[in-house]
Design a protein around this nucleic acid. Sequence first.
DNA 1: CTGCGCATTTCTGTCGACAATTTTGAGCAG
DNA 2: CTGCTCAAAATTGTCGACAGAAATGCGCAG
Lengths: 228, 228
Amino acid sequence: MDQDGERVEEADDRLLTDQLFEQLSEAIVLGTFAPGSKLSEPRLAAQYGVSRGPLREAIRRLEERKLVTRAPRQGVRVVVTSPNDALELFTIREVLEGLAARHAAEHATDGEIDALRTMLARHREALSQPDAMVYWQATANSDFHFMIARVGRNQHLFDVLCGEYYTLFRLYRMQHRIVPGRAQRALMEHERIVEAISDRDAELAEMLMRRHIASARTGLVAQTGGAD
Amino acid sequence: MDQDGERVEEADDRLLTDQLFEQLSEAIVLGTFAPGSKLSEPRLAAQYGVSRGPLREAIRRLEERKLVTRAPRQGVRVVVTSPNDALELFTIREVLEGLAARHAAEHATDGEIDALRTMLARHREALSQPDAMVYWQATANSDFHFMIARVGRNQHLFDVLCGEYYTLFRLYRMQHRIVPGRAQRALMEHERIVEAISDRDAELAEMLMRRHIASARTGLVAQTGGAD
DNA sequence: CTGCGCATTTCTGTCGACAATTTTGAGCAG
DNA sequence: CTGCTCAAAATTGTCGACAGAAATGCGCAG
């Protein structure tokens, strides 16, 4: 152990709890803390150079976000997800993202639609580059769903999709190896969704988005990797 | 102040943080802590007879559940919700409860359908009693949505609807005076939803549930009180 | 060699205390 | 009487410490 000890020293005026939450979240998603491994409070406190107070508050938030599971008086462990869990979560995501797309079609301004189109053009350009997959997985795909949620004009929905559930989605992708194996096709689906939004066709936008998410869910069940 | 000081003394082996979270949630929903009022940590710690450690963890959870808002270095205040916030939340609830109803129609066992019918019969019976409204608001309505979510066989969805969002829904009903003014009609809608589930008509169950929630949302906009 | 019991160690849950910042409010100028 | 200044009080964010419970690991019986 003690291999790194990435302290929290950046003279940041953000609260310690928030910094810890972000670092712990990232470590969990990236697999630095393996699924099922225990998060010992004294060890983490020493590792990050903080006391257990703020650390415990950060862990509480991890628990609330379902990134760890707590056994009373036994500490917390990185959540271990089953394929069925992933199925459940993506089913929820399907209706929520569908709702966001519907709202986007109803409320997007012309400027926002232009911005969506510009973004997709950038994505198409990037897909022909060498490291296309890593860019797609890390940035492009998230950007699209992020923007749709924002354009939907439902702050609560945005918070859920892009804040509270975002890291959990990433964790499920990691634990179940849901890599975007069909980025080309996913991009095409994104373009069709934006077209529907541009046409102010709310119903179509919702349906296309739901199918888009569902395709990832289906690929997940088949264990072959989805497009999202 | 200091009028009551309901200590936490029940020799409960549950964690202090959990007890505090429940008591604070209840106090917020019931209006004991007025919307917008500040939650002072030293005052609450004295009032409940605990130290600030577990209290802060409970407050973090309140924050995560959107029951309070935090201004860094200024403490937390009971959330003040706008009618638009309520609209946003009920829009989300509409698709989630619709999803739960669809899943319920797909996965309910015959025994569960019997149990649903039995419950509705009990509710109809209770609606002819003197204190019908208070029973409806406090118990019957919640029981129905609770059971639908459970029968849906999606643990994540159940947790969201009956755990993470449940108290928030109650808070919105409180702050916006969304009283069940049409319990009779709401019960009829419940019965139709159960009939659709019994017929294994998932699409109809989802549609009826969405309309059922939407009617509450509409009544909310009209400020006349919804049926749910 | 394997499995059980017990002592040691570690960890969680909780508490009290300190520093820095924010809020309060008294005093004074206009 | 109103508004600004500045000191005092209160509050947040953080830390270290202690008690009880859980996990660990050793010794010993079988």
